[in-house]
Measured scan of single mutants.
Amino acid sequence: PREAYIVTIEKGKPGQTVTWYQLRADHPKPDSLISEHPTAQEAMDAKKRYED
């Protein structure tokens, strides 16, 4: 089974940042970016789909 994890990042100019959620996995390479999402819920949904 595949495993993934969610990383929170800040995008934008200082003082005007927006939080994004990255879905990452250690396949095919360590810390590979799988997808980016504007909400934590979307990231969790993507994580479930990826791991299923």
Rank of each mutant, 00 (worst) to 15 (best):
P1D: 09
P1G: 13
P1L: 13
P1N: 14
R2G: 11
R2H: 11
E3H: 15
E3K: 15
E3M: 15
A4K: 01
A4W: 09
A4S: 09
Y5Q: 04
Y5H: 07
Y5N: 03
I6D: 00
I6N: 00
V7M: 07
T8K: 15
T8H: 06
T8A: 14
T8F: 07
I9Y: 07
E10R: 08
E10V: 13
E10F: 09
K11R: 12
K11L: 08
K11S: 05
G15Y: 06
G15L: 05
G15T: 05
G15P: 15
Q16R: 11
Q16V: 09
Q16A: 13
Q16W: 10
T17S: 11
T17M: 12
T17K: 13
T17I: 11
V18Y: 09
V18F: 06
T19L: 12
T19K: 11
T19I: 14
T19S: 06
W20G: 02
W20P: 00
Y21N: 00
Y21K: 00
Y21S: 00
Q22M: 02
Q22L: 03
L23P: 00
L23E: 01
L23D: 01
R24F: 14
R24I: 12
A25L: 06
A25N: 06
D26E: 06
D26K: 13
D26H: 13
H27S: 11
H27Q: 12
H27N: 09
H27P: 03
H27I: 12
H27M: 09
P28I: 08
P28Q: 07
K29I: 14
K29T: 14
K29S: 13
K29A: 13
P30D: 06
P30W: 08
P30F: 10
D31L: 06
D31G: 15
S32M: 09
S32E: 06
S32I: 11
L33A: 04
L33V: 13
I34Q: 03
S35T: 03
S35Q: 01
S35L: 00
S35V: 01
E36D: 03
H37T: 01
P38G: 08
T39H: 04
A40K: 15
A40Q: 15
A40C: 15
Q41T: 09
Q41D: 10
E42S: 09
E42D: 11
E42P: 00
A43F: 00
M44D: 07
D45L: 13
D45F: 08
K47T: 01
K47D: 00
K47S: 02
R49P: 01
R49I: 11
R49L: 10
Y50V: 04
Y50E: 02
Y50R: 03
E51S: 07
E51I: 09
E51M: 13
E51V: 08
D52I: 12
D52E: 15
D52T: 15
